[in-house]
Structure formats: C-alpha cells, structure tokens
Amino acid sequence: MNLILKKDDLNHQLNAWRQDYEVYAPQSLQNYTHFLPLQDGFELAFDVKAHNTRIPPKALFLPTSEALLKFTRFGGYEQIPSETSPRLIFGIRPCDAHAMTMLDTVFEQERYTDPHWQARRDATLLVGLGCHEPCQTGFCTTVGSGPFNHAGLDAILTDLGDIFLVETLTEKGEGLFSQLETATEEQSAQASVLQQAAAASMPIAFETEGLKEKLDQNFDNPYWEEISRSCLSCGVCTFLCPTCFCFDIVDEAQRGERVRNWDTCMFRTYSLEASGHNPRPSRVERTRQRLSHKYTYWVDQINQIGCTGCGRCVRYCPVGLDIRAMLRKAHQLPSEVAHV
C-alpha cells in the first residue's frame, strides 16, 4: 500500500517509533555518516554528502567484535544471550538492505543458524530510503539490484520533495505506518516515474553475462597479478562491504571470553595455517579470492552475485582500486583455456 509521510512530520514519526523501538538512522560522525541510535534532539544526516553510511549496517547484526561466551579457568562456560530488543533501522539504502538478505543465506542455514544473527534480524525492522539521485560509484543496477530495490525491506520511501511516498512491503512495515493517509494515484505515479528515471540514469558498469565463467576459467591468469599490483592488502574494501561476513574466533584468555572479530580474506593471516603454510601467500591470491567470492562462488551457492554495487570499496580503497574496472578488464580474458 502507498502512503504519504510529510517531511515535516518525520521527526514526530521517528519519535513515536522510539517508544517501541531503538531507532537507528544515519547521523553525522566526524566527516561521514553512521547508523546511530536516535537520542533526544537528534539530527538526521541522510540527505547530506554521502548516500551510504561509511560502515554498512551489517555491523548492527555482526558487530566488529562481540563476545560469544564467557569461560573460567577451571572449566565451564556460559553462553552470552542474544540481543532481542526491538530495533528499527531507518534510512537504509536498497543496496545495503539487499545485502542483508544475502547474509541471511550465510547465517541462517538450515543446519547452521547463528543465534545472534538470527535474534537481531528477527528483532529489527528495515525502513529503506530509495536513491532518487544514485551515487556515481554505485552500480546496483549492474548487479541485478536497483536504487529502489525492495529486497530485505519492510517499507521503502521515495523522496517527492515535501513528502515521502511510503510503500509498505511487509505486514510489519504496514504496522509501522498505519497512521498515515493513503497516497493519491498521481503521487504514486510520480514516484514510479522518479524511480524508473533513477534506475535509468545509472550506466551499466560492466557486463555480468559470462563474467563468472571468465573468472572461473582464468584462475591462473596473470590478470590477477596485474589488478592487485598496488593493493595494500588492508581491510578497507571488505570491512566496508555490506556483504562481507568473514570472522575470526579468538579466546581472550585474560578476560575469559570467546570473541568473534571481523576478519578478511585480504589479510595475510586470514588463510595462514598453523604449520606456517599460507595457501594465499600474496595479494594476488587474496584479490582473486575477494573477486571470485563475490562474482563466482556466491553465484555457485545462491545463484546471485555477492556484491550489491554499493560502491564503498571503490570510494575508500586507499590506493584507488576500483572493482568495476577490474571486472571490465576481466572481460578481455580468454573464454576457453587451452587444455594440455
């Protein structure tokens, strides 16, 4: 159902939700925006500077570090209960919401469900804000998503000047906006024109057809060395990526806590084995892992590209490496590798 939320009423609405939820929305922190819980006198920051928050909202479900259990020196442990207090994330962009649905396939598998992830997901509503002015580094339409994609969202807002058009997408989403008046047909039509224009304004960043095969077939091509030559092997592109989920489990023996920390295939230590052998000894293999995971392994596993085109890795790579350029280049790779 399409409803109308007046911009003048937005803060009132957010405050009303704060009675029942902890409400997170993009707010300024230093020179960037961050999903922070709204406090009295909050100031939203979703229409300034950046589209996306610097840190993707995955961090609200998979924190950079979290304790999983406590143990004592003399045996015995206690599991740390999952958080279940109700939350609402307001102003999440479609690429980031889309990423949440992909991460669900990792953390909520039939046989292995992560209780912390699941509890947080179940307790959290996602109200999205579509991108009527898509960002330049983003390429959501290239990877099968779009600036008004509904995946993962309970409701999505379209900015129509003085008002937001609200499309509720789930029952929970309907419940959130039950007080609002219905949109007129003209308003709905206006939103739909705007949504289509936004998607159409985004150039196709690279061809995805046949890309997986190219990458698969060229596992040993010098291409990987070429594209990774200046890479620093840092954690920027993966830590800021909304779909990257790798973690490392460490026993902090002094504190008696088993913790889970973000980890990334771009780190040297990621695949370092106890023997000292490292199957991904250099930036070449690590870059191959990052790109292949997103553009071939995810496709094998869930038949979706594991990148939502949010553009963060492009913006913040300290040496200016651009995944779009890497993938454009991949198309020049040979299609069939000669077998000897």
Binding site: Q30, I55, L232, C234, G235, F239, N261, F267
Partner: peptide, 12 residues
C-alpha cells in the same frame, strides 16, 4: 574508538 582494525594505516 572508531577504529575497525582494518590496518590500512599500517599497510600504507
């Protein structure tokens, strides 16, 4: 506090 331990500072 804002550090995410990505070690880009170290690598750079």
């Amino acid at each position: 506090e804002r550090c995410i331990r990505c070690y880009a500072c170290r690598e750079a």
